[in-house]
Amino acid sequence: MTYKAILNGKTLKGETTTEAVDAATAEKVFKQYANDNGVDGEWTYDDATKTFTVTE
Protein backbone atom coordinates (compact mmCIF):
# COMPACT_ATOMS: atom_id res chain seq x y z
CA MET A 1 0.00 0.00 0.00
CA THR A 2 1.25 3.50 -0.80
CA TYR A 3 1.21 6.14 1.93
CA LYS A 4 1.94 9.84 1.53
CA ALA A 5 3.41 12.40 3.90
CA ILE A 6 2.99 16.16 3.58
CA LEU A 7 5.70 18.15 5.34
CA ASN A 8 4.87 21.69 6.43
CA GLY A 9 8.10 22.47 8.23
CA LYS A 10 9.72 25.81 8.89
CA THR A 11 12.74 24.84 6.79
CA LEU A 12 11.36 21.97 4.70
CA LYS A 13 8.08 21.79 2.80
CA GLY A 14 7.05 19.06 0.41
CA GLU A 15 5.64 15.59 -0.05
CA THR A 16 7.05 12.08 -0.05
CA THR A 17 5.60 8.60 -0.41
CA THR A 18 6.48 5.14 0.85
CA GLU A 19 5.29 1.60 0.30
CA ALA A 20 4.38 -0.06 3.60
CA VAL A 21 2.36 -2.99 4.90
CA ASP A 22 0.32 -0.77 7.23
CA ALA A 23 -0.10 2.78 8.51
CA ALA A 24 1.99 2.17 11.63
CA THR A 25 4.98 1.10 9.53
CA ALA A 26 4.55 4.08 7.20
CA GLU A 27 4.33 6.42 10.20
CA LYS A 28 7.69 5.17 11.52
CA VAL A 29 9.31 5.74 8.11
CA PHE A 30 7.86 9.25 7.77
CA LYS A 31 8.72 10.30 11.32
CA GLN A 32 12.31 9.16 10.82
CA TYR A 33 12.46 11.05 7.50
CA ALA A 34 11.09 14.20 9.14
CA ASN A 35 13.50 13.86 12.07
CA ASP A 36 16.46 13.37 9.70
CA ASN A 37 15.44 16.61 7.97
CA GLY A 38 14.92 18.65 11.15
CA VAL A 39 11.12 18.75 11.00
CA ASP A 40 9.35 18.31 14.35
CA GLY A 41 5.70 19.20 14.72
CA GLU A 42 2.12 18.02 15.11
CA TRP A 43 1.22 14.89 13.14
CA THR A 44 -2.19 14.00 11.73
CA TYR A 45 -3.31 11.02 9.64
CA ASP A 46 -6.21 10.73 7.19
CA ASP A 47 -7.07 7.05 6.68
CA ALA A 48 -9.31 7.78 3.69
CA THR A 49 -6.41 9.22 1.68
CA LYS A 50 -3.59 7.32 3.47
CA THR A 51 -1.92 10.68 4.11
CA PHE A 52 0.16 11.83 7.06
CA THR A 53 0.70 15.55 7.61
CA VAL A 54 3.24 17.18 9.90
CA THR A 55 3.05 20.90 10.66
CA GLU A 56 5.64 22.89 12.59
Rank of each mutant, 00 (worst) to 15 (best):
T49G: 04
K28C: 10
Q32N: 07
T49S: 10
E19I: 15
A23N: 06
F30S: 00
T2R: 12
F30D: 00
V54H: 04
T2D: 04
D36T: 08
K31I: 07
D22K: 01
D36A: 13
T49K: 06
K50V: 03
Y33M: 07
Y3Q: 03
K31P: 00
L12I: 13
V29M: 09
A34V: 06
D40T: 13
E42W: 12
F30L: 06
T51W: 01
N37T: 06
K28G: 08
E19T: 14
W43G: 00
K28L: 12
V39A: 04
V39C: 05
N37R: 14
D36I: 11
T53Y: 13
K50P: 00
D47W: 09
T51Q: 04
D22L: 04
N35W: 15
F30G: 00
T55E: 06
T18Q: 05
F30Q: 00
K31T: 05
T53A: 05
I6N: 05
D47A: 14
A48V: 11
T49L: 07
Q32R: 11
V54W: 12
M1D: 13
A23Q: 11
F30I: 02
A24F: 10
E27W: 15
T17I: 09
Q32F: 05
T49C: 04
E15H: 10
G9V: 09
T51Y: 02
T25G: 08
D46P: 01
Q32P: 01
V29L: 10
N37Q: 12
A26D: 00
A5L: 15
A34F: 10
T49Q: 06
A20R: 02
M1Y: 15
I6D: 03
E15F: 14
V54T: 02
N37H: 14
A24K: 11
D36V: 08
G14F: 15
T11G: 11
Y33Q: 04
E56I: 08
D46L: 04
G41S: 02
A26M: 00
K50F: 09
F52Q: 00
V39D: 01
K10C: 14
T18N: 03
A34I: 05
E19N: 13
E42T: 13
K13R: 12
A24T: 09
T44I: 09
K50H: 11
T44R: 08
Y45T: 00
E19W: 15
Y45K: 01
E56W: 13
D47S: 12
W43K: 00
F52V: 00
F30E: 00
T25L: 07
D47P: 14
A48R: 11
N35C: 14
Y33T: 03
T25C: 08
T11H: 13
K13M: 09
N8W: 12
N37M: 15
G9H: 06
A34H: 02
A48C: 09
K10P: 09
T2W: 13
K13I: 10
N8Y: 11
E56S: 08
D47I: 09
K31Y: 06
E56L: 07
T25I: 08
K10E: 07
M1C: 13
L7M: 10
A26P: 01
N8R: 12
Q32L: 09
V29Y: 15
D36Y: 08
V54I: 13
F52C: 00
A34P: 00
T55I: 09
T17A: 08
D40C: 13
E27H: 13
A20P: 01
T16A: 12
L12S: 07
T17C: 12
T11K: 11
